[in-house]
Design a protein around this nucleic acid. Structure first.
Length: 743
DNA sequence: TTTGACGACATTTTT
DNA sequence: TGTCGTCAAA
């Protein structure tokens, strides 16, 4: 058997077919755990080994850096060498690479900076400020969302200006237009722009397009279900010459519609690319039969899908465990106990994951794990490069690298404190607008004007330091430069002082983070490379580095797998998310269901689902929660439903929460603010309902439930209040209307 | 101009 | 719960 056959012999019939089918538009519908990465990798290998293309003639696009790195690593291993100069990366990183070489064609300089969300919002705030746009009823995030959406749909400023109908549209169009010109002036790019600018280049510069079309003989795309319109167009441009594309995706795992990845995009594959064919991979190698059965059963409730039948040769496995708790602490405690059990069975913590709908829900688990000393990591939480001190340092580097970067300068102009406050910045902003110059230049103008004072002296100091650092760029390497800046700017001293003043843990962390940051600089040859890297890459913790429990959102769990999965917070309204349903109706619900499908199919051996009926902390109110409808949609014979107090009393066979279907008709397509008030009203009614039903005739000695204090017994009733002896709290006087009858 | 206190407000998911 | 904006005092 030759090498090629040996490597392909690991694949099943369908996988092999998918690997060998070339010179067409191929869509591989790969169910969860059906070995799609393996197929993609084998396909690249097959192309290379058959000498159909050189490594740099293959374009492989993914959505995460993790997936890109894995692909590089595994293909490298198969052909036994490190491949240099090939095109494997995310849409954004590849676009950035193309854009660096063609920056001037879209009015940017070569050293443009890629800005993140925080910078975007700051910029929009600034625009609204100077344009006197009221941010009371619509926040900057709203406008940013609109702009992002336009970019996902390849809608230009002109398009939006033309189609603006009402005054709100016009305001958005105006902000969009100024935002774009500001970005150009600052020599910056946001994520959406990376794709947009490339599309402009492809569209307006046939030579460049030809160049890239010739370059890429084969195009491969991972996670195709996450594609948005602009990205699809991007692919289509590159595809038109060789007409050879292979996309792998799972329509049931499309969970990013809010990023423009609408399910219709994958469903319209056949219309977008010529001579299409579809191969399904339906054998699952990951999960037990039971888990798979649950997942399939659940996803069958969706209408918008290609449809496929997953099957598996794996063991039947354990039943899925369902538990209800009355508060989050109890949930966290129970799960940590379960985990201790698993540890006793010699399960590695890396093989355990807790998945949640909302990132904020890690808290109760963090608390618990800290208490009992279980190590954990949060994946996709607060990212390293988003920490304040790191962003400060980066801002220093950015302004030294690029004098046009107002956003960076504004960030550090008064950090550490130099006595340059709001008023001064306002004056400088005025100069910027009047003379149409950068903030850096405006500072010089401001310093040079009329009478001298302390503030001007300070600004002058900073400006000349930045000049000095910039001129040292050629003599020092980027690490030395960074060290110099940290000392010279007084930033290090500032952090030192801060950690002495309040010796809380957080400030200790700051110093640590700065050290880690300095260390990470070593991995890069120069400043430019480093700045590019940090703007596109965020995950820097290697999953298997230490033995830790994994906490993450269901979204960030996509593409991962674990032996044991705890899926928490399966409460109606939270999951499926009320908001998602209200905004997009049944489409929203189906997306939530796909999310549940993703969560379930992460598990290899066993899955634990839990929900909390009371005291799920969510800002102002403590709602009474009903278990998620998704639990009801699981096949009963595969479940073990446990006797928690609350769950036992919950009438499982009843159709719960039919109201949701009604509100779905009432609110779709309404603007957020209107929704917001509706939700508020609904909540009120909902609560009143409970009170009316539950306050009726309480008796002394009766066991009751209170949202905050839990279960208790009535000692005495006096008019509308009762003295309650709580089981988990002390004895208290409570209004009858806040009591709930033991259900 | 900075700082601290206070109240208002918002919380889905992220390359 | 924590962040943000506003206000008054230093």
């Amino acid at each position: 058997m030759n090498n090629l056959d040996k490597n392909l012999s690991f694949l099943n019939k369908h996988q092999q077919e998918a690997v060998k089918k070339l010179n067409c538009s191929l869509l591989i519908l790969a169910g969860a755990g059906s070995g799609k990465t393996r197929v993609l990798i084998s396909k690249i290998y097959y192309i290379l080994i058959s000498k159909l293309a050189l490594p740099n003639q293959i374009l492989a696009v993914t959505f995460t850096n993790k997936a890109a790195n894995e692909m590089k690593f595994r293909v490298g291993k198969m052909i036994n060498s490190n491949i240099e100069g090939w095109w494997v990366g995310t849409f954004h990183s590849i676009s950035a690479k193309i854009l660096r070489r063609n920056a001037e064609k879209v009015g940017l300089k070569k050293n443009f900076v890629i800005i993140d969300n925080e910078d975007q919002i700051k910029l929009i705030k600034k625009i609204c400020d100077s344009e006197k746009i009221d941010l009371k009823d619509r926040n900057p995030k709203y406008y940013l969302n609109c702009i992002d959406r336009y970019k996902n749909e390849f809608l230009t400023v002109e398009d939006i200006l033309n189609q603006a109908k009402n005054s709100n549209d016009k305001i958005i169009a105006k902000i969009y237009s100024i935002y774009e010109s500001e970005l150009k002036r600052l020599n910056c790019c946001d994520f959406g722009n990376l794709i947009m600018h490339c599309l402009f280049i492809f569209k307006n510069d046939p030579n460049s397009l030809k160049h890239y079309q010739n370059q890429f003989k084969y195009i491969l795309v991972d996670e195709y279900q996450d594609i948005n319109f602009s990205q699809q167009l991007w692919l289509n441009y590159l595809y038109r010459l060789n007409k050879n594309i292979c996309c792998v995706g799972d329509d049931d795992q499309s969970i990013y519609s809010w990023r423009g990845a609408e399910i219709k995009n994958i469903l319209s594959f056949e219309k977008t690319f010529e001579n299409p064919s579809i191969i399904r991979l339906e054998q699952n190698y990951r999960s037990t039969k039971r888990i798979l059965n649950c997942a399939s059963h659940l996803i069958n409730n969706n209408k918008n899908r290609y449809g496929k039948n997953l099957w598996s040769d794996n063991n039947t496995g354990d039943k899925v465990e369902i538990r209800g708790f009355w508060e989050t602490k109890e949930e966290a405690k129970n799960i940590s106990d379960q985990i201790e059990d698993l540890i006793r069975k010699k399960v590695s913590l890396n093989e355990i994951a807790i998945l949640m709908r909302v990132a904020a829900h890690t808290r109760s688990f963090e608390e618990r794990f800290l208490n009992v000393g279980l190590p954990y990591r949060i994946i996709g939480g607060i990212k390293f490069y988003e920490r304040r001190e790191i962003k400060d340092i980066i801002a220093y580097l950015r302004i030294v690298n690029n004098f046009d970067d107002d956003l960076a300068l504004e960030r550090i102009i008064n950090v550490p404190k130099r006595g340059i406050g709001k008023t001064t910045i306002k004056k400088i902003n005025l100069i910027i607008r009047k003379n149409k110059i950068s903030m850096f230049e405006a500072c010089k103008v401001y310093v040079g004007s009329e009478e001298k004072n302390k503030i001007k002296y300070q600004i002058n100091e900073l400006i000349s330091k930045i000049h000095k650092w910039n001129s040292l760029k050629k003599q020092l390497d980027h690490i030395e430069l960074c060290e110099l800046i940290l000392e010279d700017s007084g930033y290090m001293e500032f952090i030192d002082n801060e950690s002495k003043q309040k010796d809380n843990i957080e400030n200790y962390d700051r110093l640590d983070n700065i050290n880690e940051f300095m260390n990470s600089l070593k991995d890069f040859e120069n400043l430019d490379g480093f700045l590019e890297h940090i703007s596109l890459v965020n995950d820097n913790e290697n999953i298997n580095e230490n033995n830790k429990i994994n906490l993450m959102t269901m979204h960030s769990a996509k593409g991962l797998e674990f032996n044991y999965v705890f899926a928490i917070g399966w409460e109606e309204g939270l999951f499926p998310s009320k908001r998602s349903i209200e905004e997009k109706g049944s489409l929203g619900l189906e997306e939530e269901r796909r999310l549940a499908y993703v969560a379930l199919t992460r598990a290899k051996k066993k899955i634990f689902i839990s929900f909390v009926t009371q005291n799920r902390y969510s800002y102002a109110n403590h709602d009474f929660n009903v278990p998620s409808r998704f639990i009801k949609e699981l096949p009963k014979e595969e479940l073990n439903i446990y006797n928690s107090e609350v769950f036992q009393n919950y009438n499982y066979s009843n159709d719960f929460n039919e109201n949701f279907e009604e509100s779905e008709i009432l609110t779709p397509g309404k603007k957020r603010m209107i929704d917001y008030y509706k939700i508020k009203d609904n909540n009120l009614e909902f609560n009143q309902d409970i009170n009316i039903v539950k306050t009726s005739n309480f008796e002394e000695g009766e066991r009751i439930f209170h949202k905050k204090f839990g279960y208790g017994r009535i000692l005495e009733i006096e008019n509308d209040t009762a003295l309650i002896n709580f089981e988990k709290s002390e004895t208290k006087m409570i209004f009858l209307k806040y009591l709930i009858k033991e259900i």
